[in-house]
Structures are given as C-alpha cells and as structure tokens.
Computed example of a mutant assay.
Amino acid sequence: MEKILVTGANGQLGSELNVLSSNYPQHEWVFADRTKITLDNLDLLKTQLSEIQPTIILNCGAYTAVDKAETEKELAFTINNAAVALIAKYAFENNAKLIHISTDYVFDGLSSIALNEEAETNPINIYGESKRAGEIACLSENPNSIILRTSWVYSKFGNNFVKTMQRLMQEKESINVVNDQVGSPTYAADLAQAMIDIINFSTWVPGIYNYSNEGEISWHEFALTIKEFGEYKCIVVGIPSASYPTPAKRPNFSLLDKKKIKEVYNLDIPDYQESLKKMFIK
C-alpha cells in the first residue's frame, strides 16, 4: 500500500484531495497541515518526513500571499524554495514519488501565445521568483519529480477569486474587475483528480507539466461568468490593471498550453465553464 503525504492539507488543493481520497482506499492517506509538516522550519521538516515515511508526496503546501511576499521575501523563499529542496531530496533518497505544485507566476506575462513547458521563465514578483527557485531546486535535488504548473486556482474551500466575487456580487451594486490579464482558471477539484490519475497511471514520466482548465479569458470575463451562473444582479465593470495597483505586479498573459499533460497522462481537461458550474451546483 502506498502511503501518500499531502502537504498544505487545509488549502484549496489539499482539501479537494481529502474529499477525493475516500474513492481510493487502496492508498494510505496522510493529510498534513502546518502542525504535521512545518515548511518554514527545515530541521523540524526533516524530522517530520522521516517519521511519516511517505512513498508518495503531493506537495500542495506553499507561501501564496502574492502581495505580502514583496515584504516577506525570506519567508516566501524558505517555504517555496528551501523546503521544496528538502522534500525533493528526501523523496530522491527514499525512492518516493513527488508531485510539486507550481504556478503561472514563473512567467513575465509578455507572451501572446499559450505558454508551454519549454517557454522561458522570467518572474516579475517575489512570489514568482520564489516559486521558480523551488522548481529549479526540486528538479536539481530530484530529477524524478513531477512539477505541475497551474493558474488562477479556485475551490469551495479557502479564499479565492470565485468566492470573493460571489460575496461582493451579493453585497454591492457594482464592482470593478481587471480586464487586461489573460489566462485560464483551475478548479482545484479537477487538479486534485489529475494528480491522483497521475500517481495511479501505468508509467511515471518526470518533468514539468502545465494544468489548468480549458479556455482563454480575462479576470473580467471570469467574473461575468460567475455573475451569470450565480444569477447576480451586480454590474461588473472591466478596468485596466493600471487602475487597480497592487504591491506585486501580475503577469498580463499566463495562458498555459496543456498539450503535454494530455498526451503523456491521457488526461481529459474540462472547459472552465463546465468546472465552474460544478462548484455552483455542489
């Protein structure tokens, strides 16, 4: 029986994996929150991994406060880089499989075509820099790792764009949403299922893979779809990013090309509207 360690158990992705885990009783699941896996204390982390002794690690834990990272660089790099290196090293030395979650923020947003796994990385904020450093460390310490880059993650769990929009659209008559950042959302339940499909697949093919739902939209278009599905009356106004300054810059274009993961792991990736509808129905 494989023992699967899920870090970041209380996050969006960890929570969705927890929901799905009951469908896979052939595995022993260990869902580790910050008390069981301490990503900001490397000595403790090393001990915790040795105690749990997982045969598969799904590293969903991360520092994800994009704006706060601009002033908490050391903490962001400890969790998103140093801890990842340690986990990857453990996995390599103990012959454990590792899937590590990364982000579209490793890109600068200057592309105009969907980004594949070979596209040049050039993060434009501290969070993106820390996640890119984590990717490099992960593959350096453990070339057998799988890295999944994803974007615009949402779920019924945790804090995310969809839940924020649902709340604001019920509270306000009008809201502004940026219309010049383009990508595709990822329903965490779909990504969680993809991770399970990969670990249960007949072959293990290491490397970097992109995963998000299908579709090419702006945040404004995403908000309009949320409004439609929720039947909200709120007016949704599209504005340029320049009108909504944030401490950390965001990439203007981060649409991910999913051809590789579909071909290698035979995954069927749903359209973003289909997946968003699932969240509304649940």
Rank of each mutant, 00 (worst) to 15 (best):
T55N: 07
S241T: 15
P251Y: 03
N159E: 14
E228L: 12
H220T: 04
L5R: 07
E129H: 05
N200I: 00
I101Q: 04
E72T: 06
Q26H: 14
K36S: 13
N94A: 13
N81A: 15
I79M: 11
E70G: 03
W152G: 00
A69W: 09
I199V: 15
P54M: 09
G8E: 12
Y127I: 10
A119N: 11
E16H: 08
P54V: 10
S21P: 08
V237I: 15
D67K: 05
G215I: 07
D40Y: 04
R149K: 10
S241P: 01
V264K: 15
A32T: 09
K73I: 05
E120M: 12
R149A: 07
Y24G: 06
Y187C: 08
G8S: 12
I269H: 01
T78F: 01
L276N: 04
D40P: 01
D67F: 12
V162R: 11
D40K: 04
T35I: 01
C234H: 03
G230N: 14
A133T: 07
E221F: 04
K163Q: 13
D197G: 05
N142M: 14
N23S: 15
G8A: 12
S130N: 02
N144V: 02
V205L: 14
N41Y: 06
G14L: 10
A88V: 05
S202V: 08
A137Q: 15
L139I: 11
E231T: 02
Q181A: 13
R34L: 09
A223P: 06
M279P: 00
S145Q: 02
S218W: 05
F280A: 05
Y63S: 07
C138L: 08
L267S: 14
M165F: 12
E117A: 06
